[in-house]
Design a protein around this nucleic acid. Structure first.
Lengths: 236, 236
DNA sequence: ATCGATTTGTGCGTATGTATC
DNA sequence: TGATACATACGCACAAATCGA
């Protein structure tokens, strides 16, 4: 242990930080099992409650998985994509309106999703194209809940079709926060006509592997969405 | 257990999920104080340790802040930018090599940092320009540790100069994971000559608000970095 | 500045549920 | 079926931090 460590850190915090550091520097690798609570409490010279709380905090971050039973125990794991994405979505949702403006969110969305469309036009498989078509909807018979799910599914399908797992992880929370805060079901039908037209145009571009077309179609689509967000803000 | 019963969810998990849901749907606001542990344990009909572990799990995610003392207690907070960025960095680091390839990381980096340079060229203040210049180094007197910090500082300064707080949050973890895994101090001096030249060219573009120049200079810089990563991988 | 009230931090013992053998 | 090992849950007691009178 390094000298001059923070003097007044509670044992619980210290254990949490210590285990986290061991995961980070590879001392503990994925799938490895930690000593039992009793062993840890003996090693650190603290009670089992203290150990348990430290392990809980790390489990909340998705770094540990706790299983019961004789062959159970606490195991090192990596946060799932869903866990990361969910944490990011909640964090962005809580930041939106104070530290982070709608313009910030829109800008990130355009930075990520416009290249994503271009990459997807190159990488998409037939299966992904079919999944994308399944998200198209009939703008003349709008069930608000269904349309909301379709638009989310459309953009997620594009991100997935890039074959880069990081793009859905970082881009979908941004998209979800924007869609949650706006036009959940407040948008007039005219908007859905435009959205549907844009979606179909993008799908057409992906079908013929038209990278430049997909990029520009997505750019136009997101520009329209941006205008809708701003109009929605002005009204409320 | 009777047939059709909901699977047994432990009280601790239930409390954790319940509090998280209340934060998410706005029932609990930022800065609001939760009831004391004793009150919560009475409300939920569980022991105080159970409550503490649930709160610890949420505190580990940066959603709660726990303070001791008479006016202390458990307060709802939003995860700090550092917390989010740190969690993302560790998660990416653990995923790198299995679910996520180096090519995936490089692609995200280019998607984010090339537009960032273009935006920074428009938005940068004199102070940010000065901070950027402070990260330049002398490639002929390379102290590996210092150069490593400088390159990180350079890219972070660009991201900050965009005036979009989300860009540092999502882009810096990607950058850090790549730099950690490669050329920490294995790079030959020739590389640092090129890096220094690229950095100075980008700074020059930002100085004269040359958006297209900054974008293309960053593109070239990241292309060179990509080649270095791949060469580094081939050698090891 | 001391004292007391409030709240979290910690230790320990015990009983129970559950998965594995 | 029973034994074993481990997590789960609870309750209590005391320590430490903090604030206010």
């Amino acid at each position: 242990m390094a000298i001059g460590d923070t003097p007044t850190v509670t044992p619980g915090r210290r254990i949490e930080h210590d285990v986290r550091a061991q995961i980070e520097n590879g001392n503990l690798h994925i799938g490895e099992r930690l000593p039992s609570e009793a062993e840890l409490s003996a090693q650190y010279g603290v009670g089992r409650n203290t150990v348990r709380e430290a392990l809980r905090a790390l489990a909340g971050q998705g770094l540990l998985e706790i299983k019961v039973g004789k062959r159970g125990g606490t195991f090192v794991t990596r946060p799932s994509a869903e866990k990361i994405s969910g944490s990011l979505r909640l964090a962005l949702s809580l930041m939106a309106g104070t530290e982070v403006s709608v313009a910030n969110l829109v800008q990130i969305r355009e930075i990520l999703e416009i290249p994503a469309a271009e990459i997807a036009a190159l990488q998409r498989t037939e299966e992904e194209l079919a999944a994308l078509r399944a998200t198209l909807f009939d703008p003349y018979h709008v069930d608000p809940d269904r349309v909301f799910g379709c638009t989310g599914g459309f953009h997620l399908a594009i991100l997935r079709a890039t074959h880069n797992p990081l793009l859905p992880i970082v881009a979908s929370p941004v998209f979800q926060v924007l869609e949650e805060r706006f036009l959940r079901d407040r948008a007039p039908q005219r908007v859905w006509l435009d959205v549907d037209r844009d979606h179909r145009e993008i799908v057409d571009c992906l079908e013929r592997h038209d990278q430049a077309g997909a990029r520009e179609a997505m750019r136009a689509h997101l520009r329209a969405a941006r205008q809708q967000y701003y109009q929605d803000m002005a009204e409320s």
